[in-house]
Design a protein around this nucleic acid. Structure first.
Length: 412
DNA sequence: CCTCCACAGGAAGCGCAGGAGT
DNA sequence: ACTCCTGCGCTTCCTGTGGAGG
């Protein structure tokens, strides 16, 4: 049993990391390089809250990994700290809409954050809304409600909730709510109801992407806290920065790379993080992402994905919606499963596109109609592996599955 | 210039599960 | 026990459309 203890002991004193959590996505660092200007802006907009005045609503736009979330959370925590010192009644509420992408859940989260107990389901949105209003109405507080990644909510369910939220203040007696919307796409702002747009967009802020040099500074400052001295080879940080810069300057990506590279080094028992570890990290991150996505897919989405893999010949060619549908029907026939309609498959394909597993462009082929040209963007081997691991339908099914996916990938 | 293909993608709504409130 | 709520995966019905071929 000694080896078990060894595992635990070596986990206790990592040779690579001093403090691994400083590289995790939701860690808010005490210092944000190249974002001083943005921090100032956000802080000065929210500052009136300390005097008991409602700050302007704010819209923040910027691509993923440009520090939007970090800046807002940073300023929010400082604001709350100042409020505590001065006895001001200010509270921040942060909701990431990405995984809570229905009106009900967003409202429920806000409710939880302000201290209303809200059941998982069973109440109407209006009811929950009413409870929140009742709870906070005469507290005399200024609430700063941050809705991160608003895109997911608006795209799927429209902007009703936003409209309701912007109007909530008229129902409150002494409390006030001020909204901060964070989004990745500018188009979103344009697609909003004009009333919401003008209300939420009282102030608009754009976060530009980082360039490789700035990413380097960010990694540098975090690595100092996260890694033991001398662990990183000199080329590591520039390499991670360069790889992430290629993906529109995504700092989050860069930090993930660095962390996973460190984890790999550690797992292998190496004391130094090398270029090779970074390259492996890149593959591992992609594999995990794909596996995560595929695992949570409903059955027919998996079947459609398998059909796409089959039609594209394992990602070498392209497929059209019609071809995929034919293949899909063949698959379900062999499995003895009911088929869904073309409309649904079209929708599933659009969903897979949004998940970043495939990419589809709508193309007109003249006489031969208009369709989506579908290509795989995720690694085929990762996809096949995730799909095969996931099959829980019994033995006979496996054969059909293997046939659909081709001979690639290790089944068994 | 018009047609008409092969779909895209919006809108409404259904049936079910999970879970209130009364 | 009964009613009403939401989310999810889905169907039905629908209108819209870029461009090769006539």
């Amino acid at each position: 049993m000694d080896y078990v203890r060894d595992i635990f002991e070596s986990a206790l004193k990592s040779r690579v990391f001093r403090s691994r959590e400083k590289l995790l996505p939701d860690y808010v660092p005490g210092f944000l390089p190249h974002r001083e200007g943005e921090i100032r802006r956000v802080a000065s907009i929210l500052a009136p809250a300390l005097r008991g005045e409602k700050p302007s609503n704010m819209f923040i736009y910027g691509l993923t990994g440009t520090g939007k979330t970090a800046v807002v959370r940073y300023v929010l925590s400082k604001l709350e700290a100042s409020a505590r010192e001065s006895g001001s009644r200010v509270r921040g509420v942060y909701v990431n809409v990405r995984y809570r992408d229905t009106p009900y859940r967003v409202i429920a989260d806000i409710g939880e954050a302000v201290g209303v107990r809200i059941p998982f389901t069973g109440l109407s949105v209006g009811e929950v809304f009413g409870r929140i209003v009742k709870k906070i109405s005469d507290q005399g507080y200024i609430y700063i409600v941050v809705l991160d990644e608003i895109d997911f909510l608006v795209k799927k369910r429209g902007d009703d909730v936003l409209y309701k939220l912007t109007r909530i203040n008229s129902e409150l007696s002494s409390s006030r709510i001020s909204l901060v919307g964070i989004t990745n796409s500018v188009d979103l702002i344009e697609s909003l109801d004009p009333r919401v747009k003008s209300s939420l967009g009282e102030v608009e802020l754009v976060f530009p992407p980082y360039n490789a040099e700035q990413l380097r500074d960010i990694l540098e400052s975090r690595a100092k806290e996260a890694f033991n001295p001398g662990v990183l080879e000199d080329e590591i940080i520039p390499l991670c920065a360069a790889l992430a810069a290629r993906e529109h300057g995504d700092a989050r990506r860069a930090l993930d790379l660095l962390r996973v590279a460190g984890e790999i080094a550690e797992r292998l028992g190496d004391v130094r993080v090398t270029r090779d570890h970074v390259m492996r990290a890149r593959e591992e991150i992609e594999r995990d992402r794909v596996a995560d996505v595929v695992r949570t897919l409903p059955l027919h989405s998996k079947l459609v994905l398998a059909s796409i893999i089959a039609v594209t010949g394992g990602g070498r060619g392209y497929a059209t919606t019609g071809e995929v549908y034919d293949r899909y029907r063949g698959l379900t026939a062999k499995l003895g499963i009911e088929t869904v309609t073309l409309r649904r498959v079209s929708g599933i394909i659009a969903e897979l596109d949004m998940l970043g597993i495939i990419s589809g462009r709508v193309v007109s082929r003249g006489r031969y109609g208009k369709t989506r040209v579908i290509e795989l963007t995720a690694d085929v081997n990762a996809l096949v592996k995730a799909l095969s691991e996931d099959i829980t339908m019994g033995e006979s099914v496996e054969e059909v599955w293997r046939e659909a996916l081709g001979k690639r990938g290790s089944m068994r």
